[in-house]
Simulated scan of single mutants.
Amino acid sequence: MEVKLSDIGEGMAEATINCFFVKPGDVVKADQPLLEVQTDKMTAEIPAPAAGIIKEIKALAGENIPVGTTLLILEKEINTTVQVPITTISNTTRVMATPYTRKIARENGIPIEDIFGTGPAGRITDEDVYRYIQNQSTPIEASIQVEEQNMTEPFNIQETSTIQQDIIPFRGKRKHIAKKMVQSLHTIAHCTHFEEIDVSNLLEFRHELKNRNRNITATVFFLKAISISLKEFPIFNASLLEEQESIQLKKEHHIGVAIDTPDGLMVPVIRNVEQKSIETLHIELKQLTEKALQNQLTLKDISGGTFTISNVGPLGGSIGATPIIQHPEVALVSFHKTKKRPVVTEDDQIVIRSIMNISMSFDHRVADGATAVAFTNRLTTLIENPNLMLLELV
C-alpha cells in the first residue's frame, strides 16, 4: 500500500520531509512513526497506517512535497510461504534540525546524525554544521580557507562572471508567516495607536514576588491586564464576518503570545485567560514557550486565538512598531522596551520612573480610534496599578 502525505490540519498544501525513521526492509507496527515532516505551522510525525514491511522509500529527506505525494510503499502482509529475510526495526535516531540545516549537511556530504547539537533540546543549528565542517577540514583545506579569507585584492567585475551569494529556502514556517502577513495587510484596515505606560509599580511588585520565590514574568501580568480590558471592550475580542455582515464577539479569551524561535515566529495560544490565575498563566506560558523553542507545538497549541500580544521588550532596542494583526482577529498589542526616564509628577516634582511603550494595532473596520484609546487607557491603569488586578483574579 502507498503511504501518502495527507492534510494534517488547516488546509495544509505542502510539507518538507525532515527525516525518515525507517528504511527499506524494516518491519513496522501500526501507528509506529515512519518519518517527520515540517508543515507551514508545525513539526509532525507520519505514522504507519498498518503493520507490515517497508518495501520502498519514494521521497527524499529535505524534499518539499505537496499533499497527496506518495512517501513510501508498505507491504501489509508477509508471505509465509516464501519468507524473505526480515530486517529489524530501524534504530534511526530522531535528529532535531531545520530542513535548511539538513540541506547544508547533505550538500557537504556529512551525516547529520554525527553532529552534536547545541540548540534547544539538542537541536542542530547551522553553526553546528559549519563548526563540524571546519573541524573535519584537512590541513591543506584549512590553509586554502585561510588564504581565501586573507585575499585583499579589489573586486574586479570584468574579471568575474559570477557573484557569490547565499540562497536560503523560502518555505515552511517562513512561507506561512509571509502568506498570513500578506493576507492580513490586504484584508484588515490596520490602524496603530501608541501609548506610554509607567511600569515602575509592576516591576517593584515582581521584585517582591521574586523575594518570595515567585518569579512571575511580566508577560503574564500583561496577559491578565489584556483579558480584564477585553471584558470591558469585547469589540477587540472579535471577528468580522463580512459575508454575514456581522461582528462575532467572543466570550472566551484565547490569547496568542508571539515567541521568537530559531525556526521563526510562533504564536502559541493560552486558552480561557479570563478564567485563570496569574500562577496558572505563568505555568502554561512557560510550558508553551519550551514547546515552541523545541519545535514541539501541536496544531491545537497554535490555533483558535482571539487576540494576540507580543512582548518584544526583552529583545532590546524596540521603542515602537506597527504590528500586523493575525487574521481573523481584530487587534494586537505589542509591548516594547522599558527605559528609565525623568517624569514630572502631579505636584511638579521630577522623578525617575520606568516607562514602557506599547503599540496597539486594530481593525478600523470594526472599531474606532476613540474606542482603541479607551481600551489602552484601561490597560494602562491596570499595568500601572497591578494591585487593581487582584479584584479580577480567579
Results as ranks from 00 to 15, higher is better:
Gly305Leu: 03
Phe236Thr: 00
Lys337Asn: 15
Leu285Trp: 04
Asn295Thr: 09
Ser246Asn: 08
Ser310Gln: 05
Thr308Leu: 07
Lys251Gly: 13
Lys300Ser: 11
Lys291Phe: 05
Gln248Val: 13
Gln294Trp: 09
Thr306Tyr: 03
Leu230Met: 08
Lys300Val: 12
Ser334Arg: 10
Ile324Arg: 13
Leu265Gln: 10
Asp347Leu: 12
Gly305Ile: 01
Lys291Asn: 08
Ile278Pro: 07
Glu279Leu: 06
Thr322Asn: 14
Ile319Leu: 11
Gln326Ala: 15
Glu279Ala: 11
Val267Gln: 14
Ile309Gln: 04
Glu329Asn: 15
Gln287His: 12
Ile309Met: 09
Ser303Trp: 04
Leu293Trp: 01
Pro323His: 02
Ser318Asp: 02
Gln294Pro: 02
Gln248Leu: 14
Val273Met: 08
Pro328Gln: 11
Gln326Pro: 12
Leu230Ser: 01
Leu249Gln: 12
Leu265Arg: 01
Leu241Asp: 15
Pro314Phe: 12
Glu245Gln: 15
Lys339Gln: 15
Lys339Gly: 04
Asp347Ala: 14
Thr261Glu: 05
Pro262His: 02
Thr261Trp: 00
Pro268Arg: 02
Gln287Gly: 00
Ile259Val: 09
Ser277Glu: 03
Thr280Ala: 14
Ile247Lys: 00
Met266Val: 13
Ser229Trp: 07
Pro234His: 07
His254Met: 01
Thr280Met: 07
Leu297His: 01
Lys300Arg: 11
Pro323Leu: 01
Asp348Phe: 04
Leu299Cys: 11
Phe307Ala: 00
Gln296Ile: 12
Gln287Asn: 12
Asn272Leu: 03
Lys251Asp: 11
Phe233Cys: 05
Ile325Gln: 04
Leu240Arg: 11
Pro342Asp: 10
Thr322Asp: 15
Val333Thr: 11
Lys276Val: 14
Thr322Glu: 13
Gln326Val: 12
Gly313His: 04
Glu232Arg: 10
Lys300His: 15
Val344Gly: 02
Lys250Cys: 05
Gly320Leu: 05
